[in-house]
């Protein structure tokens, strides 16, 4: 009686502690792994020069065309935000519409302190919270650092959409699965540039392998003061911004 009870208790303790330990180890951030991968092979990143963006939204249109994103203004793999910071401290932000606006603004408003455009896209985080929360492993990081969604196994629970701090994901209305920027993975694998980078008229967007020695990407990161979005969340974005204003979130 006593021996059996002891055995049961030990077995229970073993099971509980074992599963708890295993669980904790697996829950721990996978950033160590991510960084290791970044040293070998390709590790894609993206650069945005805020000072070069003219807000023409060629990128948004090209992205929607290239990736069959619904044209309705509720689904974006990339978009451009316009910031107007007024002297009284008020910050006005709008997503730039792809249709050219009717009459252009003429005289500059004297109440405006500064104003600029900021392109946004999936940050392809090195430590992606969307991948962490996906219950079925439908969203994952490729070995070259791109976060993809497997539309054949996504169950459409939208936990990843909630977990993305950047609003980069949406539920595709036709497939009913999560969808997001892939850095144009199909183009990149063929040596082409992502569609948005391809059509950007002012080189405000650049793309490349972060491991390459000499490239636009390398020079961009070398010659600019770089910032990423929401660094405090420790997602380690791979979309790098040069000349980013502190008001941009």
């Amino acid at each position: 009686m006593d021996g059996r009870r002891k055995f049961l208790r030990n077995a229970l303790a073993f099971l509980v502690s074992g599963s708890a330990l295993g669980g904790v180890l697996k829950i721990l951030p996978s950033s160590a792994l991510a960084k290791e991968a970044s040293r070998t092979g390709k590790w894609y990143g993206f650069g945005v020069s805020v000072d070069k963006c003219i807000g023409c939204t060629r990128c948004v249109e090209a992205c929607k065309t290239e990736n069959d994103v619904p044209k309705e203004p509720f689904y974006f793999r990339t978009w451009v935000e316009r910031y107007i910071i007024r002297k009284d401290g008020e910050v006005i932000v709008k997503a730039v519409e792809t249709k050219p606006e009717g009459v252009p603004e003429s005289a500059s408003d004297r109440e405006v302190l500064r104003s600029f455009f900021v392109p946004k896209l999936c940050n392809q985080c090195a430590d992606p919270p969307c991948v962490q929360v996906c219950p079925v492993g439908a969203t994952f990081q490729t070995k070259d650092g791109v976060v993809l969604v497997n539309e054949k196994t996504c169950i459409g629970c939208r936990y990843c959409i909630q977990a993305c701090p950047y609003g980069a994901r949406y539920l595709h209305p036709e497939t009913r699965t999560a969808d997001k920027c892939t850095f144009c993975y199909h183009r990149v694998s063929q040596g082409l540039l992502p569609a948005c980078v391809e059509v950007c008229p002012t080189q405000a967007r650049i793309f490349g392998d972060l491991n390459s020695g000499a490239s636009v990407m390398a020079r961009f990161r070398r010659m600019n003061k770089i910032h990423v979005l929401k660094p405090a969340l420790n997602t380690e974005p791979k979309v790098y911004y040069a000349g980013l204003d502190g008001e941009v979130r």
């Binding site: 990736n67 490729t142 993809l148 539309e151 993975y185 199909h186 063929q190 082409l192």
Partner: peptide, 22 residues
């Protein structure tokens, strides 16, 4: 899930390109 990921990468790479490049 590893098999599924490999499939997904292949499917993603096979998507048609629409912008030909400069």
């Amino acid at each position: 899930v590893k098999i599924q990921w490999a499939d997904a990468v292949k499917r993603e790479q096979a998507k048609p390109v629409k912008y030909a490049g400069f």
